[in-house]
């Protein structure tokens, strides 16, 4: 199995960073506040490392927005927030204070839109910059323990995952979370190929 070399990982990080940056622009205009982004992290995770990966997240309740994608690449884009931070993030959009309000369907709808803005920007950037054709399914929302972070289908297939993650923060509302893309292993060759083309075309 081919894996990404350090240069390819750097390019992938850069593209994700640009995408999240675009999503930040959209969100900034929606709530007139500043979103801080950290440099993305890209990891290859074998099935045997799943537990370690899950344990990396705090043991609490999570709200997760998932956008599955098919086409040249297959996988799942996810916005992962602890319930507490999800509530803070929603409050930032509806102008309410307090954090411990249950996620009713009104709040879930808003969180789904926020997730949609971030995911769309990253995935749009990825597909545009690397010239990848993707089909999308309507995003879904779920909440539960940290065990919902890895897509169930990947657990079932014991897939190796290419995991790209970035951490964002909205200082004013003390809200933070992670954006992650889980690529299926069969996508790796295409991804490497597309990154290589991008590199040769734009960076050499």
């Amino acid at each position: 199995m081919n894996i990404l070399n350090p240069l390819q990982i750097e390019i992938l990080k850069e593209i994700i960073n640009i995408g999240v940056g675009k999503s930040a622009d959209v969100l900034n205009t929606m709530i007139q506040t500043h979103i801080t982004l950290e440099v993305p992290e890209v990891k290859i995770i074998q099935f045997s490392e799943y537990q370690d990966f899950v344990d990396y997240f705090e043991d609490e309740n999570y709200a997760v927005i998932t956008l599955p994608f098919n086409g040249d690449l297959t996988g799942f884009s996810k916005l992962i927030l602890s319930s507490d931070h999800a509530a803070k993030l929603v409050n930032a959009f509806i102008g309410r204070s307090g954090t411990s309000i249950d996620m009713d369907s009104l709040r879930i709808d808003i969180l789904s839109e926020i997730g949609n803005v971030i995911i769309n920007a990253v995935m749009g950037t990825l597909s545009n910059m690397l010239n990848i054709n993707l089909d999308y399914i309507v995003p879904s929302y779920e909440q539960g323990s940290r065990n919902i972070i890895i897509p169930e289908e990947m657990i079932k297939n014991e897939s190796t995952i290419l995991f790209a993650k970035t951490h964002f923060k909205i200082e004013e509302f003390e809200a933070r979370g992670n954006f992650a893309i889980f690529f299926r292993v069969k996508s790796f060759n295409t991804l490497i190929e597309k990154i290589q083309i991008y590199y040769e075309k734009n960076l050499l």
Binding site: I94, D109, S112, E113, G115, N116, N120, M123, L134, V138
Partner: peptide, 23 residues
């Protein structure tokens, strides 16, 4: 423009756009 800029990528095969009822 705020809506157009979010909807336009859909015409290029981009991901679905969600607009929540409350906002």
């Amino acid at each position: 423009e705020s809506y157009k800029s979010r909807i336009n990528p859909v015409f290029k095969g981009g991901p679905p756009v969600v607009l929540s009822a409350k906002l």
